[in-house]
């Protein structure tokens, strides 16, 4: 790394320029709403992957029902927008909070379960929530889904056009990922990692492991809920199929392909697994085979992920201004 990137603000500024200037400007050149839809999808799934990264990659809890909390957020936002006429500024936080509340209720009894049993419990919860979305017709409209025509309004102004919507999505996603980055790259994050490594040992270090697991599961669901609200408002339509088991697995695949425990890796995984099928659209049905093949090969040759945890942590410490470089010497190993 050169001296300039060590300053701690260069990489963040470059990332912001990419998300808020280069990407939208480039997309606008093509002038097609479809490209913005794909960009929104990349952002939403980046948030989903990074929120799952905190639970599965950092805290080591194999969570197979993340899409269900995403779905709760989407339905809360969509139903508030249609039935209650409460728009985006209400729907967004409510989506996060309701998803978090559900996660808290689920987490209280399940967090004492050991690894594989916990995974099966989250699988079951995900299926249950999805079944409710599908069959509670009176509220969720069942398989027909919910249409949300109102669009995003901010303080009385309608956010019109794909570019403006993209900016709203980008602001929410970037702010959320910043929070998740602080959680992941801090001493709090180190405590979470110790749960993954050896939770009994963490207990002996004074860490309330059960509480911490409940906390991280709930926080992660909050951000999945926000992603759900963004999905509802950008597509204008939610249906149960978007939040089923295969979506949970897709998000998990993003985290694993990118690198378990690596936040930048989760984003890399999300970008790859959203863009790849779009790029390969011309191949028809064959594209799913290609996507599967790419995942298979990447795991085979890079089991630690495209951007593994060790290099990701070193990268974050050097470039995002969170290193602790004080005495002794200029070491870059701690967290700010």
């Amino acid at each position: 790394m050169s001296e300039i990137t060590r300053k701690g603000w260069v990489v963040p500024v470059l990332l912001l320029v990419l998300v808020f200037a280069v990407a939208p400007f480039t997309l606008a050149q093509f002038g097609k709403g479809y490209f913005f839809q794909v960009a929104n999808l990349v952002l939403i799934f980046s948030l989903l992957a990074v929120s799952l990264h905190l639970v599965t990659g950092v805290a080591g809890l194999l969570h197979l029902g993340h899409a269900a909390f995403y779905g709760i957020g989407a339905y809360v936002a969509a139903l508030m927008g249609t039935d209650l006429k409460l728009g985006f500024l209400w729907g967004l936080p409510a989506a996060g909070l309701v998803a978090a509340l559900f996660a808290l209720v689920v987490a209280l009894p399940t967090m004492r379960l050991v690894s594989i049993y916990f995974a099966v419990a989250t699988l079951a919860i995900g299926q249950m929530i999805n079944t409710v979305l599908l069959n509670w017709v009176a509220v969720t409209k069942g398989p027909n889904g919910v249409m949300l025509f109102s669009g995003i309004k901010l303080f009385g102004f309608a956010v019109k056009g794909p570019l403006a919507v993209y900016f709203v999505v980008a602001v929410v996603v970037v702010a959320s990922i910043w929070v998740l980055h602080r959680l992941s790259h801090s001493y709090y994050g180190n405590a979470l990692r110790s749960l993954r490594e050896d939770d009994q040992c963490a207990d002996a270090m004074g860490i309330d492991t059960v509480r911490l697991k409940i906390e991280v599961f709930t926080l992660s669901a909050f951000f999945a809920g926000l992603a759900g609200a963004l999905w509802a408002y950008t597509t204008g339509y939610v249906s149960p199929g978007d939040f089923n088991f295969s979506n949970s697995i897709l998000i998990l695949a993003m985290v694993v392909v990118g690198g378990l425990g690596s936040l930048p890796g989760a984003i890399v995984g999300a970008v790859l697994l959203i863009l790849l099928p779009e790029v390969l659209r011309g191949l028809g049905d064959l594209r799913n085979v290609m996507v599967g093949l790419v995942m298979f090969v990447s795991i085979l040759f890079l089991p630690k992920g495209l951007f593994g945890e060790v290099s990701a942590l070193a990268f974050v410490r050097r470039n995002l201004g969170v290193k602790w470089g004080a005495a002794p010497s200029e070491r870059e190993v701690g967290w700010r």
């Binding site: 001493y187 180190n190 405590a191 963490a202 004074g206 860490i207 906390e215």
Partner: peptide, 11 residues
């Protein structure tokens, strides 16, 4: 982890 276990750091 020993330090943060003893000193605590909330989310």
């Amino acid at each position: 982890v020993g330090s943060v276990g003893a000193m605590g750091q909330s989310a």
